[in-house]
Structures are given as structure tokens and as C-alpha cells.
Amino acid sequence: MKSLVSIIGLVGDTKEIDPKQIQNLSPFIEQVLRVEKPFKRASLEFRYGEHSEVVVPTLNGSITFGQNHPLVIVAGPCSVENEEMIIETALRVRGAGAHFLRGGAYKPRTSPYAFQGHGESALSLLAKARLASGLGIITEVMDTSDLDKVAEVADVVQIGARNMQNFSLLKKVGATAKPVLLKRGLSATIEEWLMAAEYILAAGNPNVILCERGIRSFDRQYTRNTLDISAIPVLRSLTHLPIMIDPSHATGKAEYVPTMAMAAVAAGVDSLMIEVHPNPAKALSDGPQSLTVEGFEKFMQEMSPLGRFFGRWTQNHSTPAKLSLQVSSSTAIFSG
């Protein structure tokens, strides 16, 4: 007979509570821990030192983000531009071993004149790409009013760097059961980032993945941002949540993406997000940081020995799927 283990967390101002009083409430209470950190539910102590898993059902089966699981690869363009482009990209990155397709329907941009994404119509194209490829979908929500329609399509809802401290949005996604990818803010400290995750966890959603995408520093001449590789071991010591690295946004230049991705794997990351576009020179957004499809295929081949060395690579990463593209104005399907 299996024993039932429950963890009960007390949050709020608990300084005056004596742990021994809680311990004496019942003979079935095995251990009482005081979590000193302000991020209670996100802290590693909250789960007795056990790292959590985020399991995401997809058409190709469930994919698990977590420390003791294979590396999860997310790939795709910055934004969804048209049907042929997004489906072609989905099929090609899946063939190279990706598990999720990323693509923005709603895009927060520094300039109001830059391409902002196609909005709701792009969501329908992502849905077609899912049917065509079987990949899971990760896409960003920017406004609480859009959450329901984004969640209908997304297997993982992304909170972008510029919305990391949009507390109304964090509470809203926390009230859903949909897994959440929380990107680190442009100038956010690790504690601020974890406190943002705490908002989601406190609202009832335990399925949070943290994504380091580079922070703003004093030298922006040669890279777009500074990728904080040290965040990986620091987070491992502080939180139970899975960790993703986005070297594309961090470096801003495609030629640096493979090297930084490899560094992240060596540091123990759980997932990589790589921007991929069939023709980066003509991309409507973030072309310079996007790998070509051929570049992504080469990247996956180069990642294989390192991933295997660290025990984070599977046959599914490196065995190309035999896919054929069939696109019409209304539907797209995959074979293989």
C-alpha cells in the first residue's frame, strides 16, 4: 500500500508562528520547514528540494520540461507572417527534432511603427501549423482580454519580457490550467523574476517554466543583450521550476546562437528556444537573430553529441521525420 504524502504551505506573515506548534498538531506531520525567501511557492524548499516537472500534452504525445528529462527544443519564427511560411517552418523544425513551434501572433515592439503581428488571424495559422506538424504551440499573450483566444491555440502561453511584471496578466494566467512560459524582464533581477512566477503560482497554476532571454547591460554594440548563463545554476539552487534559455533574443545575432545554446546545455538548462525563419533577410521581425531552416538542421546535428554527453538527448531529437507538405487555403496536413 502506497503512503499518501501531502505538502501544506502557509503563506503571508508567518514570522510569529513557531514551527514546533505546527509539528505538534498531528503525529502524521513529518517535517515543518520555514521558507525564508519571499518567493514561497517558487522556492526549492517548498518542494523539499525536489525539482518540479511541467507536462504538456501535444498531438505527438506529452512533452515534459524538467531537470531529469530530455532537453526540450522550441523553434520557429519571431512572428507568424503567412500560412505557407509558418507551416513550412513547422514541418522542417519538427523534421530536425524540435518539440514545439514558437511564433508570435501579438508582438510587443519598442517602436509603434514596427510590425506588431497579425493578431487573431495568426492564431488560426498556428492552429493549422499544429495540425500539419503535430508540434506543440508556444505563443505570447500581451493583454488579459486576449488570453482566452490565445489559450485556445497555445499549448504553452508565453509571458514576454516586457510583461514580466504585468501583475494583472500574471494573475489571469495563474487562474488558468494552461502551462506558462515566463520570460525574464529586460532589467529584472533574479528575485524579481521569481516573484513574478510567484504571482502565477499563488493564483493556482503550478505549471511555470522560466526563460532567460538576456538582460540589458552596458555593451549593446556587439550583442543585443547579455545572456546570463549564471542564472541557470543560481536558479537550480533557488527554485524547483524548469529552466529554458533563449539565445536568439539574448545575442541578437544568429552566428552566436549555437555557441550560447551549447553553453546553456553544459550549464544544465532544461529547454532551448531557437528562432528559425525560412528567409531571415526578409523576416518581418528579428531576422538577424534567426537561423535559417538549414542552419537549424545543422545546429541540431551539432547539439547531438553534447546533449548525449549530458544525458539530455534522445533518438527523437536527431532522427529526421519524413514529412510532406500539403497546403491549401483552408487546411494543411502532414504525412509520416
Rank of each mutant, 00 (worst) to 15 (best):
residue 179 P to G: 02
residue 245 I to R: 03
residue 181 L to C: 11
residue 6 S to E: 13
residue 122 A to E: 10
residue 325 L to W: 08
residue 332 A to D: 09
residue 147 L to R: 02
residue 190 I to Y: 04
residue 79 S to L: 09
residue 139 T to F: 00
residue 191 E to C: 13
residue 284 L to G: 06
residue 148 D to T: 14
residue 58 T to S: 00
residue 203 A to V: 12
residue 84 E to H: 09
residue 183 K to S: 00
residue 333 I to W: 10
residue 138 I to D: 13
residue 102 R to S: 07
residue 89 T to A: 08
residue 258 P to E: 07
residue 286 D to N: 08
residue 328 S to Y: 11
residue 292 T to M: 08
residue 282 K to A: 14
residue 11 V to N: 02
residue 96 A to F: 11
residue 84 E to G: 10
residue 260 M to P: 14
residue 269 V to W: 01
residue 28 F to W: 12
residue 188 A to W: 00
residue 70 P to R: 03
residue 36 E to V: 00
residue 37 K to D: 14
residue 214 G to F: 01
residue 268 G to K: 02
residue 62 S to W: 04
residue 234 V to T: 14
residue 23 Q to T: 06
residue 171 K to W: 00
residue 197 A to V: 14
residue 182 L to K: 01
residue 57 P to N: 01
residue 125 L to T: 03
residue 30 E to N: 14
residue 218 F to G: 09
residue 274 I to V: 15
residue 313 W to G: 15
residue 218 F to M: 13
residue 12 G to L: 09
residue 255 E to R: 06
residue 86 I to P: 07
residue 162 R to F: 08
residue 265 V to T: 04
residue 186 L to G: 15
residue 113 Y to V: 04
residue 306 L to F: 14
residue 329 S to G: 15
residue 169 L to P: 09
residue 95 G to Y: 01
residue 24 N to H: 00
residue 292 T to P: 12
residue 60 N to T: 10
residue 314 T to Q: 15
residue 250 A to H: 10
residue 74 V to R: 06
residue 220 R to L: 01
residue 121 S to I: 13
residue 18 D to T: 02
residue 69 H to T: 05
residue 82 N to I: 01
residue 211 C to L: 04
residue 63 I to H: 11
residue 20 K to P: 10
residue 200 I to M: 05
residue 298 K to E: 13
residue 92 R to Q: 12
residue 278 P to N: 08
residue 215 I to D: 05
residue 97 G to M: 00
residue 86 I to F: 00
residue 67 Q to W: 10
residue 97 G to H: 08
residue 97 G to D: 01
residue 64 T to M: 11
residue 9 G to E: 05
residue 95 G to A: 11
residue 12 G to V: 00
residue 158 Q to T: 12
residue 278 P to W: 01
residue 269 V to C: 12
residue 260 M to V: 04
residue 137 I to K: 00
residue 31 Q to K: 11
residue 273 M to Q: 12
residue 38 P to M: 04
residue 217 S to I: 14
residue 303 M to C: 15
residue 99 H to G: 10
residue 27 P to R: 00
residue 2 K to S: 05
residue 116 Q to K: 13
residue 8 I to N: 02
residue 34 R to M: 13
residue 197 A to H: 10
residue 8 I to K: 02
residue 213 R to N: 06
residue 11 V to R: 05
residue 149 K to Y: 07
residue 52 S to V: 09
residue 292 T to D: 13
residue 115 F to W: 04
residue 179 P to M: 00
residue 226 T to I: 05
residue 20 K to N: 12
residue 199 Y to V: 03
residue 82 N to P: 07
residue 193 W to L: 07
residue 75 A to S: 06
residue 192 E to D: 15
residue 205 N to T: 12
residue 278 P to T: 08
residue 236 R to D: 13
residue 89 T to R: 01
residue 313 W to Q: 11
residue 291 L to R: 00
residue 21 Q to M: 09
residue 145 S to I: 04
residue 78 C to S: 11
residue 105 A to N: 07
residue 281 A to Y: 00
residue 234 V to L: 05
residue 110 T to E: 12
residue 143 D to V: 02
residue 11 V to E: 14
residue 111 S to E: 13
residue 121 S to K: 10
residue 30 E to P: 10
residue 207 N to H: 13
residue 30 E to D: 10
residue 35 V to D: 14
residue 254 A to H: 09
residue 42 A to W: 03
residue 75 A to M: 07
residue 143 D to S: 08
residue 166 N to A: 10
residue 261 A to S: 15
residue 270 D to E: 01
residue 123 L to M: 09
residue 30 E to Y: 08
residue 56 V to F: 01
residue 256 Y to T: 06
residue 47 R to P: 15
residue 231 A to T: 05
residue 21 Q to R: 04
residue 86 I to E: 06
